[in-house]
């Protein structure tokens, strides 16, 4: 058991270290600019006075390390600073939107995960049949399609032509849950289609890898039933790769949501990020990037922890 604890502590501290370094990158990449952020945002034509005013507002007159620690300290207390564009508190802008993004990602995950697992296991069991081959071609195609292509196809057919679901996912904070699920069905379905392919290919590969290993052959030669081989011998060893695939795709969902949110005009964090990038509202962009990156890193960390915890070789040491 000690081994596991040590590995977990190692992994978690590595994750926290990564998080810290990433926050450094997000903060300090601004200082890569030849001038400073205030100058760059206002452009060449700005007068010295306006630039100085903005500098003061952004706190650029303070030394770099002081600014970093007050920025980080603020964020840890939920204070992301003030938007340059509309002078509002960034935490206010982000709060509801981040919840919306999480809702959409989880909604898609609830459809995608079971679907991908079933399809993947079936493809592995009926390997090299027409089912497997056609699934291979279909998933390869959908992996390589841009999200907005899938999104607009769904919008055109499901919404405009057949009128089943609304084409724009406009929800507010007090939209009731069922109404919300109905309105966000198309974006969720788009995300599902995009991640299912990847997840099921990896599930299939994990199972096929396992079924090719000697101890499975041994079990088959002992005369065990196929069902028992899969439930008692294959699955315990398959959990780690499968959990990994699921969590990595959740991470992808949270990030991949950016394009889908823009297509369906869904009020999430991704849309805020895109708007702020085109307005060059640096503090908001930094805040959004930090949240996205942190979510991504934490989910990867969880994937690692779960795969350590479900590894039979570590749980039952010799």
């Amino acid at each position: 058991m000690n081994d596991i604890v040590r590995m977990l502590i190692q992994r978690i501290s590595l994750g926290l270290l990564t998080l810290f370094v990433v926050s450094l990158i997000i903060f300090f990449s601004v200082s890569l600019l030849p001038g400073d952020a205030a100058q760059a945002m206002l452009g060449q034509s700005a007068t010295e006075d306006t630039v100085n005013a903005l500098r003061k507002q952004m706190g650029l007159d303070q030394p770099l390390h002081t600014r970093y620690f007050s920025w980080l300290g603020g964020i840890l207390q939920g204070d992301f600073g003030v938007s340059i564009g509309n002078k509002r508190e960034i935490s206010e802008l982000i709060g509801g939107r981040f919840a919306n993004t999480l809702f959409l990602a989880l909604y898609a995950a609830f459809i995608a995960v079971p679907l991908a697992l079933v399809l993947g296991i079936l493809a592995a069991l009926y390997r090299n049949t027409w089912y497997d081959r056609s699934v291979n071609v279909v998933t390869l195609s959908s992996i390589s399609t841009p999200e907005f292509f899938v999104a607009y196809i769904l919008m055109l057919f499901v919404s405009v032509k057949w009128g089943f679901f609304p084409s724009l996912a406009n929800v507010t904070l007090d939209t009731p849950i069922l109404e919300r699920m109905y309105r966000t069905f198309l974006p969720a379905l788009t995300l599902t289609l995009v991640v299912v392919a990847h997840m099921m290919r990896m599930t299939r590969a994990a199972i096929i890898n396992l079924l090719a290993s000697p101890y499975i052959e041994m079990a088959a030669l002992k005369g065990m039933t196929r069902r028992r081989i899969i439930t008692h011998h294959a699955l315990p060893n398959a959990w780690a790769p499968i959990i990994n695939v699921i969590v990595l795709n959740l991470a992808y969902l949270i990030v991949g949501v950016v394009v889908v949110e823009v297509v369906f005009v869904y009020p999430g964090l991704g849309q805020l990020l895109v708007d702020s990038v085109s307005r060059r509202d640096l503090p908001v962009v930094q805040a959004c990037c930090l949240i996205f990156a942190a979510t991504y890193i934490l989910l990867n960390l969880i994937a690692d922890i779960l795969s350590i915890l479900t590894n039979p070789r570590l749980l039952h040491p010799k």
């Binding site: 990158i25 601004v30 600019l33 990030v255 990037c289 996205f292």
Partner: peptide
Amino acid sequence: DVLMAIPVLIFAMLLLTIFGQ
């Protein structure tokens, strides 16, 4: 390792904001 911890699209957007589009 560290650069890969940030998703490409998100990182690219941050850098595009800083350096201009």
